[in-house]
Write a protein that binds this DNA or RNA. Structure first.
Length: 430
RNA sequence: GGCCGAGUGGCAGAAUGGCUUAUGCAGAGGAUUGCAAAUCCUUUUAUGUCGGUUCGAUUCCGGUCUCGGCCUCCA
């Protein structure tokens, strides 16, 4: 078995994964902002980290996986105003929808799924501590983080903000261009604080929740690539300001799902509604498709790609659905996943094993690590189908091929595929 | 403008300093079949571009082109 290696964005290289405590691995992933249902692009992230979670559980006796819900921010407030409903109703509704989609796509529940609004108290405490430690200052009912107090601020972004072309504006309350809000005044949705009624900034939410639940430092911090700056940059700064430590050791970031060569995002209105896709495609096919390219590479959403994933899934299902699941995963799949979660390679290895009809039990176990199952949704009327299959067989024996083909078409309409193999007639769901 | 990433056969997408150049889909031919389906066998096509290092590069280095991302909320 190979060593586990992960690409650490902080170092820009693959590193061997060595947990702080090999009895208990701690992972934090930035979850969705629940003002609008997550789209397939968001789910690429949740699925890849779900695979990481499953894989780590396979190796370490205990894994604590935290994925938060951002249930308070500007977009939530404006969306709830737009729809004229309380922000709580909006976030509850979107959360329910997210749970539904996650279940369909076989995304496991994280160990903890904290909501930001349940940790306001911790955030206020942490902000006070940051002020006390000299990393934050108060301005006009706002509290801001002083980015110049953290020397390593640019670790992720390097020379990103050069003089020309930088789009950051110095507002009247900011002392430095990279300073960011920890607390801001608010009069529609607010909590009381030492600085008046207001609400937290986005970055402190994740810091307070990960600090409270996992403690600093924890092992892996995950998220989409677009979070590197400013979100994760600022989380590191806050963690340092609070505990004088890097809050996480490994930072891993997934690339995006593109559509027509452009990033899919909620704000650019090219996002595909997962609910509609789930009506059209088997969720396992969508999941497999999203795992068919490496998480650090951009991938393009395409019908052809889904069709291909559908073919692979159908092939796997034919070989594995009746097989008893094994206890161990294939070593080739282990090594593929150990090498920076190389899911396309893992898929290749599973396909090879199935093709050679080798260790199918372990192949099925490997599928489980990828979160691919072969359970049929919905019930089918076995007696009805068996009856039709037998009727067709009789017609075939009598060489009444018109009738037999008619029944085959009828079954096909019901989503049942007939196969006349050498060892008898088989049927399966499409 | 700065920083980052990507460019592999018809498509998707791995791997690799040289060896029989994956895998899947599609295409072609064949076996099997009442016809199909499924399965099996055979088979065609590739590493953006220009240089450098090397006995040898798709792989390392540099230039160049193209595309994408971040620099504002974003998985």
């Amino acid at each position: 078995m190979d060593k586990i290696k992960l690409f650490n964005s902080l170092m820009s290289k693959k590193e061997e994964f060595i947990p702080f405590d090999d009895k208990c691995v701690k992972i934090y992933a930035c979850g969705p902002t629940i003002y609008k249902s997550p789209h397939v692009g968001n789910f690429r992230s949740f699925i890849i980290f779900d695979v990481l979670f499953r894989f780590m559980q396979q190796i370490y006796p205990k894994v604590i996986y935290v994925r938060n819900l951002t249930d308070i921010d500007d977009k939530i407030i404006s969306e709830s105003k737009l729809r004229n409903i309380p922000h709580k109703s909006l976030t509850n509704e979107v959360h329910e929808s997210f749970k539904f989609d996650s279940e369909k796509l076989n995304v496991l529940n994280p160990t903890y799924e904290p909501k930001a609004t349940e940790y306001i108290h911790n955030m206020i405490q942490d902000i006070e501590k940051l002020i006390e430690n000299g990393f934050a200052y108060v301005a006009d009912g706002n509290v801001l983080f002083d980015s110049t107090k953290y020397d390593d601020y640019r670790a992720f972004c390097k020379n990103m903000n050069s003089e020309s072309g930088a789009r950051i504006e110095l507002t009247s309350i900011k002392k430095h261009e990279n300073d960011f809000v920890l607390w801001k005044p608010s009069n529609d949705v607010f909590w009381s604080s030492p600085w008046g009624n207001g609400r937290p900034g986005w970055h402190i939410e994740c810091t307070s929740m990960s600090k409270e639940i996992l403690g600093f430092p924890f092992d892996i911090h995950c998220g989409g690539q677009d979070l590197i700056f400013p979100h994760h940059t600022n989380e590191r700064a806050q963690g340092y300001g609070l505990c004088n430590v890097d809050c996480a050791k490994y930072w891993i970031h997934n690339h995006f799902v593109n559509i027509d060569n452009n990033k899919m995002s909620k704000s650019s209105s090219n996002a595909l509604d997962l609910k509609k896709l789930l009506e059209k495609y088997n969720p396992m096919v969508i999941r497999l498709f999203l795992l068919m390219s490496h998480y650090r590479h951009p991938m393009n959403w395409s019908e052809d790609g889904l069709e291909e994933a559908g073919n692979i899934y159908a092939k796997w299902k034919r070989s594995l659905s009746e097989i008893e699941i094994g206890n161990t995963i294939l070593s080739s799949v282990y090594n593929a996943l150990a090498d920076d979660i190389n899911t396309p390679l893992a898929i290749k290895k599973i396909s090879e094993i199935i093709k050679n009809n080798e260790d199918l039990g372990s192949a099925k176990k490997s599928c489980e690590i990828l979160g691919i199952h072969f359970n049929d949704a919905g019930s089918i009327d076995n007696d009805l189908i068996e009856g039709l299959v037998q009727k067709r067989e009789e017609a075939r024996k009598n060489k009444d091929y018109n009738l037999s083909d008619q029944i085959r078409d009828q079954l096909k309409q019901m989503g049942i595929i007939i196969e006349d193999s050498k060892d008898g007639i088989k049927w399966r769901k499409e």
